[in-house]
Nucleic acid binder design. Structure first.
Lengths: 175, 175
DNA sequence: GCAACTGTTTCGCAGCCGTGAACTCACCTG
DNA sequence: CAGGTGAGTTCACGGCTGCGAAACAGTTGC
């Protein structure tokens, strides 16, 4: 949840929106309000009562939670569970996966993933690609797929039926 | 759209909620606010500025239209969602699509689209046509169609049943 | 020392975008 | 109704860029 001043902290709003995090704009006196359809954004004029702010924050929280259902789980030991199965992930891939899970079903930008995977600063330019490739292979048995959205980032989702049957065909041909 | 006083008009709120109509609660001074997750409900404390009320009403209108008319959604990462599926759109096509969605079901003029797609000025005259063609093919799997209105512009809408059966025939022939 | 993890290099393909040109189609006009 | 005109469709191509994938090498832990 992000609380931010409007229009002072315009960039923080953009960042939160890009990451899909719920946000409440505290609108300064005399300023006008942006018209935003996103259900994870709301606003309130300051000064405002504690209670009013609390209500808006709570509603945003619930909406955010409502959109997160049937999401894979990743525990602290790097064990990823989904649909009854599990695999273990090495450190770097676990951090990448945590990022993808946070925005399950939506695009995560490359730079965001890069920050998540290497908090101390990214190594080579292609390291991310390689790790995504390895991650893909590791999570395939759980029927999870990472889709590429060119020049934007990656997106984690459950394998669709047609994809599953594709795998079947590939197996047949390989066999 | 229902504007009602809270908590005076409690029944009107219930009725509107039951019918799925968007509603704005005008909360009387000193009264507390209900926590409601429904995206078609919002509230504001009175007295409030005309503008603030207008913004909340406008947002509710848009959400109502989006949920009831089943308008496709385009997120910031160029992912277009409709009817359970999604496709990703490259930058130019995403901007065109945003324009078409804004006027979903209505005609968008060619010059308007051109401005939307190329804010810095359009390239060749043919560029728009080609991108509309590519857009058409890309969104076909989502059962969305772009219709041409000769010498007027283009129009985005959901595929009708008869159009869908046409596709079926094409599939049969390909198989 | 073996196995798992990690990073780099390199090559190739596929997607994006604009252009030119051939083609279809609706509509108008003589 | 034949022919012309202009609008829109479709295809093929070239330049560019981003990502995929394999192969290799260095590191760490058991």
């Amino acid at each position: 949840m992000v609380l931010l001043r409007w229009p002072l902290e315009r960039e923080r709003r953009e960042a939160a929106a890009a990451e899909g995090r719920p946000r409440l704009l505290l609108v300064e006196e005399g300023e006008s309000v942006p018209v935003e359809e996103d259900v994870l954004e709301d606003w309130i004029r300051v000064p405002a009562g504690e209670e009013d702010v609390a209500v808006r924050v709570e509603v945003l929280r619930r909406r955010a939670r409502a959109t997160q259902q049937n999401v894979p789980e990743l525990d602290r030991d790097g064990v990823l569970r989904f649909g009854g199965g599990w695999v273990s992930l090495p450190p770097v891939e676990a951090r990448l996966m945590a990022s993808l899970i946070e925005r399950f079903g939506a695009v995560v930008r490359r730079d965001h993933l890069s920050d998540a995977g290497w908090p101390e600063g990214a190594p080579g330019r292609n390291a991310l690609d390689v790790h995504v490739l390895r991650l893909r292979r590791r999570i395939a048995p759980l029927a999870l797929v990472i889709k590429t959205v060119r020049s934007r980032g990656y997106l984690l989702e459950a394998e669709t039926d047609s994809e599953a049957s594709d795998n079947g065909q590939v197996h047949v041909r390989k066999a």
